Simulated scan of single mutants.
Amino acid sequence: MQKILPKTIIEDSKYCPGCGHGIITRLVGEVLEELKLESDALCAIAVGCACWLMDTFGVDQIQAPHGRAAAVAAGLKRCRPEKAVFTYQGDGDASAIGLSETIWAAARNEKIVVIYVNNGVFGMTGGQMAPTTLEGQKTTTSIYGRDVNLTGKPLKVLEMLKTLDIAYLARGAVTSVGEINKTKKYLKNAFQAQMNAAGYSFVEILSPCPTNWNLTPLQSIARIEKDVLPVYPLGEYMKRGEK
């Protein structure tokens, strides 16, 4: 059986072997096509691994300054309210450099979708410690493992956003076919919430980074299931009118 790619996928993935970004990009493309939004989508791209979206994803895009994708997306949506506006960001971009923009776009309930890819490191720049790096995890800037007495515990942006009056909040993963299908459902719900004018949607996706974790792709999936999921549990956390 022939595998049909979404029309928005215009080039082969530029990501490292085993990286979750390629799967996530495909899911976004499938969701936009199924909702018939591919011609009306606008994307604010983050700095970091998300930049590869510019070469592979065929929707109108704006490269945001580091951490500012949510602010750029809010401006796009206010100017073009009929469009499906989303950000594509890593955890370093959205929760380190851009935490203020992430939080305040949610506090204002901007009618955008924020796609937040959590792989626990700054991926493109060499695997440095990120806000989401786990306790004890070794990175290029925590060579003995993250010491939470010095740096604090891993930041849980999704749990912070639960305190705000927003439209949709979910955390998925790309560790198995079942979880990939759930994550696609979360992304679809997020875009539907935006197009129904419900407000701000945030979908966090746990993703492997074999290159910077120094693991094989299969080992990276196993690490997420064993070590990451207990810290970052999956599921839908908020829908408009219910939690």
Rank of each mutant, 00 (worst) to 15 (best):
G18F: 08
Q219M: 13
P131V: 04
F122Y: 15
E101S: 14
G126E: 04
E34I: 08
H66W: 06
V31G: 11
V148P: 05
P233S: 01
Y186V: 03
A106N: 05
T151M: 14
V31R: 09
G92M: 04
T87E: 06
E242L: 13
G199P: 07
C79P: 05
I9W: 02
L187V: 13
A73F: 02
E11M: 12
N149Q: 05
D60Q: 15
A70R: 03
I180F: 12
E179L: 07
Y186T: 01
A94K: 01
I24S: 02
E110P: 10
S220F: 12
T140E: 08
N118H: 01
A198S: 12
A222L: 14
A73T: 06
Q2G: 05
E236H: 08
M124F: 04
G120Q: 09
K7D: 13
C19S: 09
S100N: 15
V117W: 01
D227R: 04
R223P: 11
T25S: 09
G22D: 11
Q89A: 12
A193H: 13
T139Y: 08
A71Q: 10
I62T: 12
F202K: 04
R240C: 14
I103M: 09
N119W: 02
E159R: 09
A107Q: 12
L32H: 08
I23M: 06
E33K: 11
E204S: 06
G127R: 10
S207T: 06
F122W: 13
K7T: 12
P6A: 09
M124C: 02
G136H: 12
E34W: 11
Q89F: 07
V157L: 06
Q2Y: 07
S142E: 12
V148R: 07
L155V: 14
